[in-house]
């Protein structure tokens, strides 16, 4: 077993595989490759990778199904790759347990950033949960229910804190509207979206340097939100 993080790439496009193998190999990752969903699932069970990169357009089974089948026995972070036109599919895959997504075409920087977040998140979930999260000059102490910005305490309402806490405990990862609504409000209905928009604006006004050019809480159009650390 190599000490380098193991990455499993499930994609049927040879050129993409070739590029990813080279790029990831350069970054000291050990790369495994599967061309179909079934092969990917089998390989995932055999090598127990640290991160899975999964293309949604596989020839045999739907990427969403790969996610949900994987989730029945594994918590390994899954980053999905998808073509631009199927936003709905991305959301479905995320709701089925994928951790993050990249839209083709994507840059190597974006891919690396996502992989780093996924690895960090994996380390965090497998070990003790981080109680203190730092994002820019904002520090979120989940245990103490304390949020400071540049050292000064920030007053948040209960819902604002709940929302921020959920974003923070998944720092760096995209969270779908649905999962945010379910975690913070307990149920996900279209009408609840209005509250989510309002609370996100409130949080940005309290935490961002410039709420109109947010650096901490990013909007992922059509998908959800992401807290950057």
């Amino acid at each position: 077993m190599s000490a380098h993080p193991q990455i499993l790439v499930i994609d049927d496009e040879l050129q993409i595989l070739r590029a990813l193998r080279t790029i990831l190999g350069q970054q000291q990752y050990t790369v495994h490759v599967a061309h179909t969903g079934e092969e990917g699932l089998a390989l995932a069970a055999a090598i127990q990778p640290d991160v899975i990169i999964l293309d949604l357009g596989l020839p045999d089974i739907n990427g969403i199904e790969v996610c949900s089948r994987l989730r029945t026995w594994s918590e390994v972070p899954v980053i999905i790759l998808s073509a631009h036109e199927n936003d709905q599919e991305k959301v479905a895959a995320l709701d089925a347990g994928a951790d993050d997504y990249l839209t083709k075409p994507f840059s190597a920087d974006e891919l690396m950033a996502r992989i780093r977040v996924a690895l960090r998140h994996r380390a965090r979930t497998s070990g003790a949960k981080a109680a203190v999260i730092q994002a820019g000059n904002v520090v979120i102490d989940l245990a103490a229910h304390l949020v400071t910005r540049a050292g000064a305490p920030v007053k948040l309402t209960a819902t604002e804190f709940k929302l921020l806490a959920y974003l923070a405990s998944n720092a760096g990862r995209v969270l779908t509207h649905q999962s945010i609504l379910t975690h913070v409000w307990g149920y996900a209905e279209d009408s609840q979206m209005e509250y989510l928009r309002v609370y996100i604006r409130q949080l940005r006004q309290k935490l961002e340097e410039n709420p109109r050019n947010p650096q901490l809480i990013l909007t992922e159009s059509g998908i959800g939100y992401r807290l950057m650390t």
């Binding site: 709905q88 979206m193 928009r197 604006r201 909007t219 159009s221």
Partner: peptide, 19 residues
């Protein structure tokens, strides 16, 4: 063109476009 309409803040949309 299948619209996925939700309640959205126009300011948020403009800010994201600006980004």
């Amino acid at each position: 063109l299948k619209l996925q309409c939700q309640w959205n803040s126009l300011a948020e949309i403009v800010d994201t476009a600006m980004r």
